[in-house]
């Protein structure tokens, strides 16, 4: 029996012109077509062309479109736990994150989250971004007090941490960051990785670029497929999409790891100060993050369920992590 052809209409959250954030889905669309011998095709819609990024989950769930590509952090106003499947402050790096997702309880909790919240979607991790930068500042930040009173663009769970340190956070869309920063409407910003931030021209205005991105060590991008559409596919088609997404995870890590250092070297030449947070700052961020995580766990049972499971997995992983790897090169 010949499988029916599937056309996945896929609105996305970041433009395909943005490396890693957007190029990954172009890769998926291209591969799906080839791997499936044309029985699965994906039509990618640039952000806002069909539906704007924050509306993707709703649109896929209700079947207005049959799929969408975004990162779950966008839904944290709808489902608090969603942020944990996007990026976790002081959270796992890509390897550990994948270990929890694919071989721990991660994937089942991920799907359970959407099911419990009543969304009619099937979720597949379909890319992982390597670490982001911690942000761009106009002055050196040596101690927590230096953050007091700043207005900053910040995404996801890390924003709650910054708020605890006296930072007013806003979530500007990528296109407005440069203008807001230039005009002083915000004093500092984080957006993404060096290769992407450069596209926005942030280095033209603010010179202090802080690392490591404690708030986003690894960021998962998800392919959401309407559950009815998913159910109508043959097992072969489902496996094709699953496998292509897993391949995309590999591809995205490789792309992300490869493209940052040339950009950073060039930025350094153009006078950008690449700084590594001092221990006091890192400790402060972490302390505040644990407070935030405790508060969120108290507020939302499902957040607690995921957070506890992830934490338990990571405690176990620590034994391996502490022994398995060589020490890293030091930044300074």
């Amino acid at each position: 029996e010949a499988a029916d052809k599937v056309l996945l209409k896929t609105p996305i959250a970041f433009g395909t012109n943005l490396p890693a954030l957007g190029t990954t889905i172009t890769w998926v669309a291209d591969r799906l077509d080839k791997v499936s011998d044309g029985t699965i095709r994906m039509k990618v819609y640039e952000p806002g062309k069909l539906v704007s990024p924050p509306e993707i989950l709703d649109a896929v769930s209700s079947g207005k479109v049959n799929s969408g590509y975004a990162t779950a952090g966008y839904w944290q106003g709808k489902i608090p736990a969603a942020a944990l499947f996007s990026a976790v402050p002081f959270g796992p790096e890509a390897g550990e994150y994948m270990a929890w997702l694919y071989y721990g309880n991660g994937m089942s909790l991920y799907q359970e989250m959407y099911d419990t919240a009543g969304y009619n979607v099937h979720v597949l991790p379909c890319a992982i971004l390597s670490p982001e930068t911690s942000g761009w500042f106009s002055k050196p930040i040596e101690k927590p007090e230096d953050l007091q009173g700043l207005n900053m663009r910040f995404f996801g769970l890390g924003a709650s941490v910054m708020e605890k340190l006296g930072v007013g956070t806003v979530q500007l869309p990528g296109g407005e960051i440069f203008g807001a920063l230039e005009k002083g409407a915000i004093d500092a910003t984080e957006f993404s990785q060096p290769a992407i931030d450069t596209r926005l021209g942030l280095n033209k205005i603010v010179k202090y670029n802080y690392f490591p991105g404690w708030h986003q060590q690894a960021t998962i991008f998800e392919l959401l497929i309407n559950k009815d559409t998913w159910g109508e596919m043959t097992p072969g088609q489902q496996a094709t999409i699953e496998t292509t997404c897993m391949a995309s995870v590999t591809n995205s890590i490789a792309e992300g790891e490869a493209m940052q250092f040339p950009v950073m070297a060039e930025a350094k030449q153009n006078g950008v100060e690449i700084r590594y947070w001092n221990q006091q700052m890192l400790d402060t961020f972490q302390e505040k993050w644990l407070e935030v995580a405790a508060e969120k766990s108290a507020e939302d049972p499902f957040f607690k369920k995921v957070w506890d499971d992830l934490s338990q997995f990571r405690e176990g992983y620590d034994l391996w992590e502490a022994n398995a790897f060589l020490p890293r090169k030091q930044a300074n």
Binding site: S61, G77, G118
Partner: peptide
């Protein structure tokens, strides 16, 4: 949908 999940802002 918004009512069912008691949707709030995505900013903290």
């Amino acid at each position: 949908d918004s009512w069912r999940i008691n949707e709030s802002s995505s900013a903290p």
